[in-house]
Amino acid sequence: MSGTRFHGVIPPMLTAFKEDGTFDWEGNEKLIDFLIGSRVHGIFILGSMGEFSRLDAQERKSFSEFAAKYINGRVPLLVGTGSCNTREAIDLTRHAKDVGADGVLVVTPYYWGLTEENLYDYFAAIAQAVDIPVLIYHFPALTGQQMSPQLVKRLATDFANIVGIKASVDSITYVRQLILEVKAVKPEFSVLVGFDDHLFNTLAMGGDGAIPGTANFYPEVTVGLYESFVKGNPAESLKWHRTLLPLLEVYALDNPPIGVIKEACKQRGVGIESFVRQSAGSLNEERKKQVSRILQKVKEATAVSRQ
């Protein structure tokens, strides 16, 4: 794991907005400072949790410029640059490099189903257009695209700057295949999971970390899990894993769960409001109370884990 460039807990950072839908720059600064102060191993902006699909290309560029300048090398910065339009993805990727990002996470195109050859051509075009590190963002539940481990292996072998994957899949078999097949030909390839509850078993199989949504508001749980594991204390890591499990109830409170994650940040005092861009929605009072109950449950479990 230590040989990979991107590893550990890399939160898919929320994008803080004001009530009128404009960027809340002060709130975003507070969130970044909170995450870095919690010892995360990087920050990923403009992913699904960052509401990239509700931003236009210029807004994505503006946010990338802000984040790169404010983070200022304190932790590695990954920028989401994927698009259904390959030319736009290349343009956003070049811009991310220009502003100083450490790498990009490129989601597969969505809407139309693509053959594996067309998916290969998409990532090949981006990798050939830039020399910045590229990570594949595989989220079949949202994109409808399937990328076999063999396709990922082919891309990682053919392009030196394709250096990792975020696998937002609920199949640990798929993650195992990535680790066994891709790392066999490219040991430094980063295998990161998007589902929080797969962090522990991914590490146990030789993977590299996670890009977990709950790290926006409770990063100490996944950071504690990762750090104890790599320090050779799997028993302590397992305690953190069990502490994490009730936290995942937040994902069942709304779809998409972005407003829930923002409300959890607000209730933890991170310094952002829970405004979301439509067509995502805000939470009613009962849902906010449910968030409070989950946070209290995890607070109690975290106290036990630290004993």
Rank of each mutant, 00 (worst) to 15 (best):
S2N: 12
T4F: 01
R5H: 03
H7R: 15
H7M: 10
G8C: 04
V9K: 02
P11D: 05
T22P: 00
T22H: 03
E26C: 02
E29Q: 15
I32A: 08
D33V: 08
I36Q: 10
G37C: 11
I43M: 04
E51S: 11
E51P: 10
E51D: 13
D56G: 09
A57S: 13
S62Y: 04
S64T: 14
A68G: 06
A68R: 09
I71F: 01
V75K: 07
V79E: 07
S83V: 09
S83L: 08
N85W: 11
D91K: 08
D98V: 05
D98R: 14
D102C: 11
Y111W: 12
E117N: 12
Y120E: 04
A125S: 15
I126Q: 05
I126V: 15
D131K: 08
V134W: 08
V134Y: 04
A141P: 01
T143K: 10
T143I: 11
G144R: 04
M147H: 00
L155Q: 08
T157G: 13
T157D: 14
N161K: 11
I162R: 00
I162E: 03
I162L: 03
I165D: 01
I165P: 03
A167H: 02
V169A: 10
D170T: 07
I172F: 12
V175C: 05
V175A: 06
I179F: 07
A184M: 09
V185M: 02
P187F: 06
V191A: 07
V193A: 01
F195M: 14
D196F: 03
D196W: 05
H198G: 00
F200Y: 15
A204H: 08
G206R: 14
G207E: 01
D208T: 03
G209K: 03
G209T: 06
I211A: 04
G213F: 07
A215C: 09
N216C: 06
Y218W: 02
P219G: 09
T222K: 05
G224A: 08
Y226G: 02
Y226D: 01
K231E: 15
K231L: 12
E236P: 00
K239T: 11
H241Q: 15
R242H: 15
L245Y: 06
P246E: 07
Y251D: 11
D254N: 12
G259A: 13
V260D: 04
I261T: 13
A264T: 08
Q267T: 03
V270Y: 09
G271W: 07
S274R: 12
F275A: 13
F275L: 01
V276H: 11
R277S: 11
S279C: 08
L283T: 10
S292D: 14
R293V: 00
K299Y: 00
E300W: 03
T302S: 12
T302P: 00
V304F: 13
